[in-house]
Design a protein around this nucleic acid. Structure first.
Lengths: 170, 170
DNA sequence: AGTTTATGTCAGTCTTGTTGACATTCCAAT
DNA sequence: ATTGGAATGTCAACAAGACTGACATAAACT
């Protein structure tokens, strides 16, 4: 415990390592990593004439089946017009089903069809494979740190949405 | 070695923690965190009628002053037409200077003007402030893990570009 | 001299975001 | 029962930022 370390191991208030250079490297790492993060699904989507917006909609509908358009809007952070365009194509292509709400008939509840689930699985498999490889390469402790920093980097309201998704499980 | 832990502390091949649920949560955390990551600069850029593409160009020109268009192209991963549109406006607005190369006159070397440096600083300050806050909240060990996972998530060729930027320091 | 490289530019397309306006449906409160 | 507001959908127009393809120019390499 008496060795000198580049990154102090104690969890205190030491700010010495927070140089501009360290922060800039973090920013760049984030930029490059996000590109890698989306690269595999992007390739699959390109073949189907879909984009990232379709992937995001499919992902969160799978995550929270029966969610309303408004819920999805809040999570994705786009306008209803923008989301609607994407949903319309997904519904037309038979990947998403929109059911009128039973308690509140104004609401539309969104579900993936079997075809939708199949595409979700395909996209998710690719993205999880990279994630799994990265986690494996970095090791369990690094993963815990990764998640901790990401959560701290979110906007406060998104931390709420994220926590909700972790609770519900489904 | 006999205690049960949620996240094993040994760095071996233990895959038990890599459940689909864990991976999906990582994917979502990445999505939400990236939104937070870009939110502050986006607000500043919106006032100036610039976008993320301008920010990226400014960032990397600041990072590697005198870099060529081709270098920038490779780092940003866009087409020359796309980059050229952004560079043209930045040059027209007096934020970037393009100098003909001395050894190879085909090349254009890119530099930030004083105005360009000022905007870079403004954007960078905002982004670094959030980064610093996240780092502080998560702690030094988490930061090391964060960086480790991000690097493992990059495409191989981008890992090279990223390493280069770390070397040069500049 | 001929080819390749680096850059710039024009034209057109696509995705995904934006605003604004308007219709419909339905719940809820007066 | 009517009115007000909320949730949703849709149409139109527009902009950023990515793409492809084609072409021009200048410089460097062979």
């Amino acid at each position: 415990m008496s060795e000198t370390r580049t990154v102090p191991a104690f969890g205190g208030e030491s700010l010495l390592f927070l140089t501009d250079e360290q922060l800039r490297q973090g920013i760049e790492a984030m930029f490059f990593a996000y590109r890698g993060f989306t690269a595999d699904p992007d390739r699959i989507l390109a073949e189907l004439a879909y984009g990232r917006a379709h992937h995001r909609a499919i992902h969160f509908i799978n995550r929270a089946p029966g969610t309303t358009v408004n819920n999805l809007l809040a999570i994705l952070g786009v306008t209803k017009q923008s989301l609607n365009r994407v949903l319309r194509t997904l519904i037309a292509d038979g990947l998403v089903e929109s059911r009128v709400g039973t308690v509140d008939k104004r609401e539309r509840h969104l579900f993936l069809t079997e075809a939708g689930k199949a595409l979700e699985a395909k996209l998710s498999d690719a993205q999880r494979a990279r994630m799994r490889a990265a986690y494996k390469e970095a090791g369990p402790e690094a993963v815990a740190g990764f998640r901790k920093v990401l959560e701290a980097m979110m906007d406060a309201d998104m931390r709420g949405a994220y926590a909700k998704l972790r609770e519900t499980g489904s």
